[in-house]
Design a protein around this nucleic acid. Structure first.
Lengths: 367, 367
DNA sequence: CTGAAAGCGCTTACAG
DNA sequence: CTGAAAGCGCTTACAG
């Protein structure tokens, strides 16, 4: 039989309520002597609180839901990016005595249901489309936090990296290496206002990418470079397929088909649009796929094209050449999510986490 | 205010118990008419069951705990292998109406506590050392399932791949390619009986790897090959570092320092122990690290050395050359865990899942 | 096939 | 600083 609060109370000769107070650390209301006695009993008898009873009585649990869109059977529930976020978050919650419920969901209704069923204290929404996030309505007192979304919905707090700065950093790095014909890989999606105007939410926008592109373009243009925008989903497969785009690209005039043609070097001709000598892939997974696609086609990175990624996933260090990338601060991101979840006053939504350039081997000076 | 069973009962004009029966699908005890009426009300009023009340009353929850050893702050909670297992498991549980609690733990005491606190129906233990698993004691009626462990403890069920067959498959593949000097990369750990004799459990054994080695060695020896055993932790870093081992290896007599020396071709001299021409890394992550380490040292895979892995993680397709490997059936593994968890009669512990050779590009015929 | 009672183990006010 | 009561929303026997 499991030992309950009542058992401890009986043995200690105090009321049930006193034991409850001690167990929850409200020792200011209890004399030192009884606190000590109760604590000893708790440890001796191996008392563990019953979370269900606690939740039922308090109508809130020390549990946070982590929700991810449910995938096809063959796909993984969690992307490497999700895993990076999850690691820090689980740790953060554990330190605070909270537990984590992990679920793939098919829609907003499910998250509402789950939050209610479990009396969750909060929910974090990973990889939810912005259009969906805009529709979220408050669910009791649960705090709802999204990652990497640019939304107006006050019911959903958010944490994201400084995407625009990241884009700028990437452009600056390529500019510094002498590149003047560059490309952005990533799908910015439908324009938010277009979608709204069309009266539909079916068309989603990916503002995170739009921001990265915006920062990248601004900086690149200021450096007198030509920027090409190439839509692509953030997947290894899309990156891989993009090798074709690069190969089929009209070459530099006068130097057709020759990658990294020296004729481009130092060029500041903005109207000129030859094959990019450097590429900014808006996510590492995309960059990795792209590099592999090129490798399979016999194109060398960075000798023929420089590539810079975004995220700084571990996988970026496992490829050849090691990926130069814009690193996210995953620890800061987890901490921010948790600060928002627990209503810490120093965190105001949206929380924007810093971004840094990680120099490795996939970007090289032109010429 | 949340709508409860009692609200529905009042509106429907039936007892609370009847509503409970309908909601739980025990419709055999309820007339069709009232079932229908109750169901309509449930959906109209948006009733969702309260998991805490349910768990408290039934003293068991529809929740499974997934426990992983807690890591250092900098490490990720979940390895790519864990992610592969988790994906299928979460889906399996979701289909059955179960939820998943994910936790990093510091010891067995924590899992016991968590199982009790949440009245978990079951727990799955990922990456737990076998020595620890042997010490697990029954926790109420909770089903405890481990992955990839060879244990005698009847309190812990287990699911693993056919490690020995996997080892044999790897050896057979290398043999078929003409390799006769091969190596096994992976840490078999302390011998189980040695550890027991020493009266300590601090020294752990890794039977999964011992089995893979055993299968590999048996098959390789039967093919008259020389097998070298090289201890290494299953990490990218250890694999990377192992490039040194290969480079510093005494070369083939008469052909010092020349990798893949043709003098070796077709050799069946078992006493001869030159530099391995092929390597079986007991986990993909190790194989990937090794390949990169070699690449950085200017050694080409598979031209200079062939490499075969184990697991078939997605990452194996993201490197150059694509990794030839022994694939685990993660879907089968998830299904088996779930079958064990829910006491399906067709599943007897240990469940051994099949393994297959996935041919890609990192193994090539010698010479 | 349906109903009234007891109880799961806590917390939340409210008294002393 | 400590205690007795009520109640959270269900499920589990047990009656009819």
């Amino acid at each position: 039989m499991r030992v309950t609060l009542r058992d401890i109370a009986a043995e200690a000769g105090v009321s049930l309520q006193t034991v409850s107070n001690v167990v929850r650390g409200r020792t200011s209301r209890v004399s030192e002597a009884t606190t000590e006695r109760v604590l000893r009993l708790v440890s001796e008898r191996g008392y563990v609180p019953n979370a269900s009873a606690r939740t039922l009585a308090a109508s809130t649990s020390r549990t946070i839901g982590l929700f991810v869109p449910a995938r096809e059977q063959t796909e993984q529930l969690l992307s490497p990016y999700d895993v990076a976020v999850l690691g820090g978050l689980e740790r953060e919650l554990r330190m605070r005595g909270y537990d984590l419920l992990l679920r793939g969901v098919g829609g907003l209704g499910e998250v509402t249901g789950l939050v209610q069923t479990w009396s969750l204290a909060g929910a974090v929404l990973l990889e939810f489309p912005e259009a969906l996030l805009e529709k979220v309505e408050p669910i009791g007192d649960a705090v709802i936090v999204s990652l990497d979304a640019y939304i107006r919905n006050p019911a959903v707090l958010s944490v994201r990296s400084d995407d625009r700065a990241g884009g700028r950093l990437a452009a600056a790095r390529l500019l510094a290496a002498g590149h003047r014909t560059v490309a952005f890989l990533g799908d910015v999606g439908a324009d938010r206002d277009d979608a709204a105007a069309a009266g539909t939410m079916a068309v989603d926008s990916f503002s995170v990418l739009a921001e990265r592109l915006s920062g990248f373009r601004t900086e690149a243009l200021a450096g007198l470079a030509t920027v090409e925008y190439v839509p692509a989903r953030l997947s290894h497969g899309d990156g891989y397929a993009l090798a074709r785009w690069w190969l089929d690209h009209p070459g530099v005039p006068g130097v057709p088909g020759v990658p990294g043609a020296s004729g481009l070097s130092g060029s500041s001709d903005r109207s000129h649009s030859g094959r990019p000598t450097a590429v900014f892939a808006a996510a590492d997974i995309l960059a990795i796929g792209f590099i592999q696609g090129l490798a399979d086609a016999g194109v060398r990175v960075p000798a023929d094209v420089s590539v810079i990624g975004y995220d700084d996933l571990a996988a970026g260090q496992y490829i050849t050449p090691r990926l130069t990338t814009i690193a996210q601060d995953f620890t800061a991101k987890s901490a921010a999510v948790s600060a928002l979840l627990f209503g810490e006053t120093d965190a105001a939504s949206p929380v924007i986490t810093p971004v840094t350039l990680v120099e490795r081997a996939s970007v090289v000076a032109l010429g």
